[in-house]
Amino acid sequence: MEVRTIKVFTTVDNINLHTQVVDMSMTYGQQFGPTYLDGADVTKIKPHNSHEGKTFYVLPNDDTLRVEAFEYYHTTDPSFLGRYMSALNHTKKWKYPQVNGLTSIKWADNNCYLATALLTLQQIELKFNPPALQDAYYRARAGEAANFCALILAYCNKTVGELGDVRETMSYLFQHANLDSCKRVLNVVCKTCGQQQTTLKGVEAVMYMGTLSYEQFKKGVQIPCTCGKQATKYLVQQESPFVMMSAPPAQYELKHGTFTCASEYTGNYQCGHYKHITSKETLYCIDGALLTKSSEYKGPITDVFYKENSYTTTIK
């Protein structure tokens, strides 16, 4: 009895394709271990004539594949690729409408935090270190965002349907971005203890939790000093293409032309909904596939993004 075979390709990165001759009487799992086709788990399936010449994702289970996976995804987590594939199996079914010149995501599976993050990423200057993220990001900007969303979920250790947080998501993504040249110098002034300067680099240099107003941050924000008295913390120097200011959701007025974009969060910790506000020729609110415009805006804002380049204080 002759062994019926077909020729397929296996890959971990969709760049390096490895030619395989597979036995049609055995499952993919018996031949390769966990195997995925377009995100779908085909591990328990036997090869079919229609699979001839198709590319299958496999887990990096030998040295060659491990090197290829690390170079593309910059992670050695053995569960990463499987999590990416199972997320992709959902995100490829989502709709990605162009809204006001940006790629958004039609609401499904509690994905409003991903839509808000995706919209924000198209408006701030950011370059990702893992080629996987950078490639998928370019495709997302062009309207094909399924891979990018699935990668975000995998890097953030999230599953489809789980509630997510924009600030946490951005923080994970910033860790995989090139923020080497970003720098922030802060000064804390206390009447009792004097003053202390701190220099922050990388992710810490672009994120701040405690106030939404970048102007206020430049002037000074009140913080408790270690001595128990009130101290003032203010920005001395900022070198970065953008800054992200966050605070627990509270009524906040966004003035046209003073910011790049913002995240609105309605609801409580267990259950809520994100919308995205962007400042173009007027203010726009993007909620999944829905767009509304207004000249002014007041609502429960939790993150505001500002364009920056270089700032030095005039406070002496």
Rank of each mutant, 00 (worst) to 15 (best):
N110M: 03
G29W: 10
K201N: 13
Y252R: 04
R83D: 06
N110I: 03
Y36K: 05
D62H: 09
Q230D: 12
P78M: 08
L186K: 01
A115Q: 07
I124A: 02
P34A: 07
K183P: 02
D63I: 07
F148E: 01
Q230S: 12
V203A: 14
E144A: 14
I152T: 15
I301F: 00
G220S: 05
M207H: 05
T103P: 02
R141A: 11
A247T: 06
D303I: 00
E253Q: 10
Y96R: 04
T91S: 05
S181Q: 15
T169S: 06
L17V: 10
K191E: 14
M245A: 03
L81W: 07
K229Q: 14
T75C: 09
K293A: 13
C190R: 02
P47R: 05
D13K: 04
T314E: 07
T10D: 06
I315W: 06
T232H: 09
A136E: 14
K92A: 09
S171A: 13
P248G: 05
N49M: 14
H51Q: 10
I152Y: 05
T75D: 07
G228C: 01
G202D: 06
P47T: 05
T312L: 13
K255G: 05
P78Q: 14
N110H: 02
G210A: 03
T64F: 13
K44W: 15
V42G: 06
N309K: 10
S25R: 12
K219T: 13
T169I: 13
T64C: 13
G53Y: 12
E215D: 12
R66D: 09
P131T: 05
N187M: 11
F9G: 08
A40S: 12
V12C: 12
H18W: 08
Y269K: 07
V99D: 04
N111I: 04
Y84Q: 04
L119E: 02
T19R: 15
D303E: 00
Y155V: 04
E215M: 06
S50I: 15
H51L: 06
A145D: 02
M24S: 13
K127E: 13
V160A: 12
H74E: 07
V22W: 03
K280M: 10
S279G: 06
N49G: 08
F148I: 11
A87E: 07
W94N: 03
G257P: 01
F305W: 14
K92S: 10
L186I: 09
M85G: 05
L59Q: 15
L212S: 01
V185I: 10
Q98W: 06
A154Y: 04
G202C: 03
K307Y: 15
L118Q: 03
K219I: 11
Y73L: 04
Y84E: 03
C193I: 01
R4Y: 11
H18M: 10
Y274G: 00
N110G: 04
D62I: 13
Y72R: 13
G164Y: 02
Q20T: 14
P60I: 08
F70T: 09
K275C: 08
L81T: 11
F217N: 01
L254N: 01
D62E: 13
P130M: 04
E125M: 06
L88A: 05
C112G: 01
L186G: 02
A247C: 08
Y113G: 02
V58D: 04
K201Q: 11
E239Y: 11
R66A: 15
L235F: 01
S79T: 08
E71L: 10
P47E: 05
I45Q: 10
N16A: 08
T292S: 14
R167I: 01
L17I: 07
A136H: 12
Q238G: 00
V189I: 14
E71F: 07
M209A: 15
L254D: 00
P47Y: 05
D77Y: 05
A146I: 03
P248F: 13
E144K: 11
A117W: 02
F259G: 02
H176W: 14
Q197S: 13
A250S: 08
F128I: 02
Y252D: 00
R4S: 13
V221E: 06
E204C: 07
R66P: 10
I105K: 02
A177N: 01
G257H: 06
V67D: 10
A289D: 11
F305L: 09
R184D: 02
E281M: 00
Y28C: 04
A136Q: 13
T11H: 04
P78L: 12
T55N: 08
L179F: 15
